[in-house]
Amino acid sequence: MIKAEKLTKRFDDIVAVDHITAEIKEGCVFGLIGTNGSGKSTFLRMASGILKPDEGSITIDGEEIWENPSVKARYFYISDDQHFFPNSTPQELMQFYRCIYPAFDEKRFYSLLENFGLKKDRKINTFSKGMKKQVSVICGICAGTDYIFCDETFDGLDPVMRQTVKSLFARDMEERNLTPIIASHNLRELEDICDHVGLLHRGGILLSRELDDMKLNIHKIQCVLKPGITPKDIVELDIVKQEQVGSLYTLTVRGNQEEIMRSMELVEPVFYELIPLSLEEIFISETEVAGYDIKALIL
């Protein structure tokens, strides 16, 4: 488990990460959401041992990460703008990583390169942005580490590649309990992969919740009520948000599904239907309650 306690980092007068406390459990995909400048990369760079925290701590299974090679050997960091040796090929890069990560799976590396259609002896500086990210992900997967930190890695990947990478992660999660931590400002990208999400804003963590928990406890209802009945009349319905187009109401309500349906039945609506919410809609609802205009933050 990666644990951050009151983690803080300042760059001159700017507080990039402000007393963040968070836990990242093994075996789940952790999504780090936030706009540009929210502190995602800084958090990941501290988790990768690149930056030293000014206050607080960040540990893996209780051991400090900073200047601790045995702990650092447990993760692989993929930066948003990864460095490659000048004029190097994927093969040369692999040879370098093999020195550093003893468990590096060379055979799998070549196999994945082939699957992705990348030549092992072609210079990486001739690859496109997406292809370079593919090389980084392949290196990360084959390094055999417990964690993989991806900073906006999915940006630049086409939808097919994105799905391929997600399936790779899923396979390694199942086989060897890999824990990916993915930072992104794109909620839609992470929706179908993340188990746990943390929302960062201006260096602080706004919320950190299991995605299933969030989905179980918030629902969208589209309904048409009998004349004279309004949503206010529906008792025990915790309405977060209400919209009306003619006689059609769209309600975002908090609570579990059975309770909501029971409440709806009581008012004998003309029609009602529960619709699944997207991650984006969940966040908007949750953060609007907290008083933040999420649209301004993440769109």
């Binding site: 690149i50 200047e67 045995s70 960091y77 930066s79 460095h83 550093i100």
Partner: peptide, 16 residues
Amino acid sequence: HNKKQIDFYHSLPVKR
């Protein structure tokens, strides 16, 4: 003197 390179090298499990 290069952010990309320093992120690369210092994220690796090698003591400074």
